Amino acid sequence: MYTFVKFGGSVITDKTGREAADVPVIEALASAVAAARAADPSLALVLGHGSGSFGHHYAARYGVHRGTPLDADHTGFALTAAAALRLNRIVVDALLAAGVPAVSLQPSAALRSANGQITDWETTPISEALKRRLVPVIHGDVAFDTAQGTAIISTEALLSFLALRSPLQPRRIVLVGEAAVYTADPHRDPSAQPIPLINRANIGQVLAGAGESRAADVTGGMRSKLELMWRLVETVPGLEVYLIGPQPALLTAALLGQPLASGTCIRQ
């Protein structure tokens, strides 16, 4: 069984800026991953990250997520891909510096989509990396789309594909971003309360109250992420999804399956 982890774009960058990487946070999260691997050498990780203020800026500016006709100018596609790779290099280099044998695997080089949904993705290199005790690092990326020309594939969509349509069935998915799922937007409503557990009893109510991202996010914001994670929990036996803040000790504990002092768990 495998553990998937995502560093949210809003955590590792300032999404209201432009290509503004938060290097101290990235380095702290990389150290947390290293600590978890040291504590459990059998830990098999697939790590993904969002594009934050890197890819989202160009994707929104050029409408890459809405599609680009085949005979149109694809400069925006190229700029978005390049920006995502610049952030990916920062993340992978931080992991390597922390002692994590991370290897970058660019999704757009091996997948296609239709209407923004992945249709096929050659994931063998990810499996081969894991066999060698490497940590494959993927990221939200552009895609060539057979229906609309171009698309943006979120990190959650990539992890979902791996969970449902590859041999890499996860036991745990850890999303590092907001401190938890809340009853309302905590940035706007000071009375918002964290929801420690989401299951069949309250998923409908939670989705009804989930909002969109406050900054440019061409992948849909919190509600779409929750909907996708809930579908995974319903489909993958025994899967648990954790949404946690970027505290390094919290990430290490989540990766090791230890009790968490805060955050939200999604399970059946």
Results as ranks from 00 to 15, higher is better:
5 V>G: 05
9 G>L: 10
14 D>T: 14
15 K>L: 09
19 E>V: 02
23 V>L: 10
25 V>S: 09
27 E>W: 05
33 V>C: 09
34 A>V: 00
37 R>P: 05
38 A>F: 01
40 D>R: 04
42 S>W: 01
43 L>S: 06
45 L>E: 05
46 V>Y: 11
47 L>A: 08
49 H>P: 07
55 G>K: 02
68 T>Y: 15
71 D>H: 15
99 G>E: 09
104 S>V: 12
107 P>T: 11
109 A>G: 15
112 R>A: 14
113 S>T: 14
118 I>S: 11
119 T>F: 15
121 W>C: 01
121 W>P: 03
125 P>I: 13
127 S>G: 12
130 L>C: 05
131 K>E: 14
137 V>K: 06
137 V>P: 11
138 I>V: 15
154 S>L: 03
155 T>E: 05
157 A>T: 02
166 S>R: 08
172 R>C: 13
173 I>M: 04
174 V>N: 05
174 V>A: 04
175 L>R: 14
180 A>G: 02
182 Y>T: 01
184 A>S: 09
189 D>Q: 07
193 Q>G: 06
196 P>N: 11
197 L>D: 07
203 I>K: 02
204 G>L: 00
205 Q>H: 08
205 Q>P: 00
206 V>L: 00
209 G>S: 12
214 R>A: 13
217 D>T: 05
226 L>R: 01
227 E>T: 08
231 R>W: 03
231 R>Q: 07
235 T>L: 01
242 Y>T: 02
243 L>V: 13
254 A>S: 10
256 L>D: 01
257 G>Y: 00
264 T>M: 04
267 R>G: 03
